[in-house]
Design a protein around this nucleic acid. Structure first.
Lengths: 139, 139
DNA sequence: ACGAAAAATGTTATGTTATAACAATGCAGA
DNA sequence: TCTGCATTGTTATAACATAACATTTTTCGT
């Protein structure tokens, strides 16, 4: 399911949630998003936000950061690819990177060795982003 | 923090939680564990279970499956290594595998390319385990 | 344009996961 | 034995997520 094939479904609600996500570099919880949306309209409820998020994730317009139960917008034009996330444990920033074909190949190989039928690899790097690493070293 | 250096801290509560985890091949939620423990003693409360789990995870005696908010016991003798999880979306089984040094090296390289200071990679494979894949193909 | 079916949204309630805060107890070393 | 620290007990509540059903909007064939 790619956004390109279903542009008619990016409704106002969904666009509003995506806009909120896009304005933040850190990942946001559903309730963070809810708070932000309440600033302009009180109609928003948890279910509304979660429904929009589920759509955006299906469409690869957003991703869930599993270890934090938070969400980010997808920063990539071509959304049909595997990815990994660089999560800074100091400042909370999350960067999304494409997974190289070399890395993907290695995962396919690892899965085969375990006779596991791989559908979707999920990869997080936890550590410190460049600027935080520099700051922390200086102290 | 490795269990080998701290065996004196594996208290009865913590051992009890670990025992419950070890008896299951599927991952268990904290409240699954709580229900199981209640069968023999009503003293257990969520905080007690979570505290034990946090200890076990620190000691690498258990792991958290982030995408499911569930927990498994560590099936490995040598616990100071990176790992990945094979999560069957059909039967719910979770297998833990060591991460090969080749795979680890690739991750270190990827992180370096993004000037990211990697502390801890987390890797899940979602798909179907061998037996489920065979059953699903047969149908 | 009309009406039926499907998709999306609104609304209320509740289920599930996790931690804060503080008191009480146990336990190891001076 | 006293003292300090780790652990546990206990209560309350915060944070995350979905179920269920009513209503509205959109789509699409005629």
């Amino acid at each position: 399911m790619a956004y390109e094939n279903m542009s008619e479904k990016l409704t106002q609600n969904r666009q509003a949630v995506l806009n909120v996500l896009t304005q933040e570099t850190a990942a946001m919880s559903a309730y963070d998003i809810l708070d932000k949306l309440h600033q302009s309209d009180n109609k928003w409820k948890p279910a509304t936000v979660y429904r929009a998020l589920n759509f955006l994730i299906e469409a690869n317009l957003a991703h869930k950061i599993e270890s934090e139960q938070k969400f980010i917008s997808c920063g990539h034009q071509h959304r049909e690819h595997d990815r990994h996330f660089l999560i800074c444990e100091h400042c909370g920033s999350v960067e999304e990177r494409m997974l190289s074909s070399e890395a993907k190949q290695l995962m396919v190989l690892l899965a085969e060795q375990s006779q596991f039928q791989l559908r979707d690899p999920y990869l997080e790097f936890r550590g410190n982003c460049k600027s935080c690493a520099e700051h922390l070293k200086a102290v």
